[in-house]
Amino acid sequence: MSLNPKSIYIIAKKEFSDNARSRWIISLILIFLVLTIVSSIMAGSGKIGNMEDTVGALLSIASMLVPVISIMLGYATISGEVESGALSIVLASPIKRLEVLLGKLLGLGSVMCFSILVGFGVSGLIIAVTTGHAQWGSYLLFVLLTMLLGLLYLSLAICFSAILKRRVVSLAAGVMIFFMGMIVGMVFMGAYMATGGSLNDFGGGDTSSFPDWFWVEPFFGPQDGYGTAAMLAFGQTDVLGFEFVLPPWLNIFTITLAQLIWTAVPLALACILFLKRDI
């Protein structure tokens, strides 16, 4: 089946300009900007801190905020329009369903990526100028990883939106997947403890006794994967003063690969099921 790039572009452009018109994009940029600067001041104990410390302080909140924003952007994009009826006229136009789906992903993905790039980019500049010191390579990697996290949850949200009949159900699914991402770490900890591990090992920072399977966790929890990869981007392996010894196969490359799979699988599922759906 051949796709028409122009049709995809028309849908993407509409999604992007809708979000620009409703001032979503400018709000997101401001949120990311303020968040980064506040984190930076926190990390620099009152002054603008360096990039590494800023990202360290920013990660826990960004790993929640970015998925929430993606889910908000994407959860109703199809189910909501099916429910209201707006999508039936679009789909009765000479456009393929796949083009609509990809256009939506592209448009909303650009909203995410553009806001992240500008929001974090401008704050990066502020940090570099104020501190006179920059780790641009690592920081850029962090920005790219944040975009990937945004796309990952967007893909999940659009998938629910394409499959589920009603807007409220796709919202519920989005909330569910968000909390699943939040508890993956706890599940792994629970499993570790149940298999004879002790919380003291973790608290004491002695990670050498951790079994290999424990380190698979960042592949299963996209938010934790993002946090881990961002730390690794700065060559940081200590958390709260404890040095973590990670197995060699847990690195930025493998985590990125896992995140790409997390993005591609729901998208493929959405494509297949959306094509079969009655509108």
Binding site: D18, S22, G85, A86, S88, A92
Partner: peptide
Amino acid sequence: IGFLPERISFYDN
């Protein structure tokens, strides 16, 4: 084909 669905709705914004 010019099409008008039964339950018509556009984008509110």
